[in-house]
Amino acid sequence: MSKSEIYKRELSKLNEIFEDVEESKRKLVEGLIEDAAFLRSENHVLKQIITQTGMVKVHPEHPELQKPTESAKQYSKSVKDYCVVIKTLSGVLMRNTAEDDEEYNKILEEMRKNA
């Protein structure tokens, strides 16, 4: 799958997840959703490179001499960034759910009073 296809798929998935979120909140996190899709697609490419090259270069004559590849360093950083973005987006979803629960509880209480 191409990087572009992964980006589009991730963007579509995240937009679907956020379709029931209040519009103002959804607009607020629109950039984060795009960033998450971008990071996911970049991570896919880096992971393919790492699969071919490995994460660590080992000196052929001195195996004790090792160093991480640049793609491994970038992948590690990018995964951490992706996790932060997803955690932030998840927090927005949780707040939205909590507000929905609050609204639901208010309606139930009102119904009990009127019963």
Rank of each mutant, 00 (worst) to 15 (best):
E16Y: 08
L28H: 00
V79T: 08
Y82G: 09
L11H: 04
K47R: 12
E23P: 13
G31H: 02
L39E: 05
E42F: 04
T97R: 14
E103V: 13
R40D: 10
V79Q: 12
K25C: 01
L93G: 02
E61S: 08
T97H: 15
E110M: 15
E109Y: 10
E16S: 13
K47M: 11
M1S: 03
K57M: 14
A36H: 04
N96C: 11
T53E: 12
S41A: 06
D100N: 08
E64K: 07
G31V: 05
K77S: 09
I86Q: 01
M94T: 15
E110R: 15
E110S: 15
I86D: 02
H62L: 11
L46T: 00
N114P: 14
I50A: 07
D20M: 04
E30Q: 10
R26G: 03
E42C: 04
V79W: 07
L65N: 12
D100Y: 06
Q52I: 05
N114K: 15
D20T: 07
G91T: 11
V45Q: 11
L28G: 03
Y75T: 00
R95Y: 14
K3D: 13
L14V: 02
L32S: 07
I17H: 02
L39M: 06
K80L: 09
I50Q: 00
E19S: 07
H44W: 09
E102Y: 13
Q52E: 14
E99V: 14
R9I: 05
L93I: 13
D81Q: 06
E16W: 04
D20Y: 00
E64I: 10
E23H: 06
S4E: 10
K8C: 09
I17Y: 07
S78M: 12
K3G: 05
K113M: 10
H62Q: 09
Q52P: 03
K25Y: 00
S90K: 15
P60Q: 00
M55C: 12
M1P: 01
Q74R: 13
V45Y: 11
